[in-house]
Computed example of a mutant assay.
Amino acid sequence: MDPTLLAANRIEQTFLGLPASGEAVGGSVSIVGAVHGTAYGDSGQDLDALGGPDAVRRAITAASIHVDHWDFDFDGPLLNGGALTAYDLGNLRTVPGANAENRRVIEAATRDIRACGSIPVLIGGDDSVAIPFMRAFDDAEALHILQIDAHIDWRDKIGDEALGYSSTMRRASELPFVRSMTQVGIRAVGSARHEEVEAARVWGSRLVTVRQARAKGLAEIARAIPHDGEILIHVDCDALDPSICPGVNALSPGGLYLDEVTDLAAAALQGRRLAGFSIVEFNPARDINDMTATVVGRLVCHVLGNLARRSDRQT
């Protein structure tokens, strides 16, 4: 990977103590942080998220001191005795307010990781970092997106900005290689109005509320995701209930719980090839006792654990 895309300051703590690397390695997973995306004017969201990826690294590593010990969620060590290799590439070189350059760096780094035959795992930053992340998957013949979020993010613009965190899935719908979209965890009130809900439904997105997800069953929802092409899993931290994920910008009671999200992701990966994984909207300034940071880290761990137990994980 082009070293100019990575921040100059190396991270003090890698995710789970995994090896640090300045470039992606084929057949592996590449973990990267991207703090800054496309900010809305003077919203202050860039500063809110400052240090989020590093907070996740510290919290999950402290909670998983012995990564080679038995992981009861997987009935064995997380990485399955070396069946999966993963590297921490550090944080991408993003800057508060440098919207266009931030997007260029995120998209270019993701492309480089994919070109090396590695699976990118992105820790954000607000939801706008996912727009350039998703654009980098245009080498996929067909991409199916599973978004786990409290909000549908289908605004065309907020003010004059079309690439901010309220427009992530609207922009994804415009990518010709995105063939389906399943949005799970929707609840309460967000930026969506009648026209955004109608646009999502007309496009063909499956909107699944928390109540619907629990009534129908997470496995059943995952089963309906097409099997051709690849799947991209995108998680917004506010999809989870604030009792376990308080460190978010938009608190909304009644969300999914950790085991529900991990069960949904595991079911979605059955018989499907993972293109990439992103998790965003963690605000460390609002976290309590590193609770959200640890949950975010554990969700990444579940992706690693599932990949370590299948033979077709290569992109």
Rank of each mutant, 00 (worst) to 15 (best):
A34W: 12
V178D: 13
G305I: 09
G305W: 12
A20R: 14
H227C: 09
V261M: 08
G125M: 02
R310H: 09
V235Y: 07
A136R: 12
E12G: 15
L274E: 04
P19G: 02
H69T: 12
H144F: 05
G190I: 00
G27E: 02
L122K: 07
I148Q: 05
D88W: 11
A100D: 14
E220R: 15
S252Y: 00
I119L: 10
G247A: 06
G254E: 03
K157C: 13
D287G: 09
I123M: 09
Q270N: 04
D259T: 14
V208G: 11
P77M: 05
I65Q: 15
A83I: 02
S311P: 10
V280M: 04
H234M: 06
L207P: 09
Q147R: 15
A250M: 11
I233D: 13
F15N: 03
C116I: 07
E107K: 12
E230G: 00
V129E: 04
D149H: 04
G44Y: 06
I119F: 02
A20Y: 15
F277N: 05
I65M: 11
K157L: 12
V35D: 06
A140I: 02
V29K: 07
W70N: 10
A63R: 14
G41K: 06
E260F: 03
L256A: 06
T85Q: 13
A285M: 13
S43G: 01
D2G: 10
G52P: 01
G164T: 05
A59C: 01
L47P: 00
N9M: 11
S118I: 08
Y165Q: 14
V235I: 15
F74D: 06
R93C: 01
D138L: 02
S64Q: 15
L269F: 00
L16H: 03
